[in-house]
Amino acid sequence: MLIVIKKALATLSLLLLPLTFLLAQNDQDFMRSTGKIYVVLAVVLTIFLGIIIYLIRLDRKLTKLEDQIKNHE
């Protein structure tokens, strides 16, 4: 359950972040805003990859535990 809550919070902040950036800028400045979208993308990808790395580590821990139990039986 804790995993799910953490994931939910992380995903939520991930999803809200690019939205807040888009709202902060004005519709007028497209030329300048193109540069800033890369910042948004970089932030989003960092958070996303952070979550994925967490999931991979969790996955490996569980596999290790499962193998331990299987070997003991």
Partner: peptide, 17 residues
């Protein structure tokens, strides 16, 4: 599905233990 799978495996381990 990946996250659900992790959640399931955790619950299963807890159950087994």
């Amino acid at each position: 599905l990946w996250v659900a799978d992790l959640s399931y495996r955790t619950a299963r381990l807890r159950d087994k233990l």
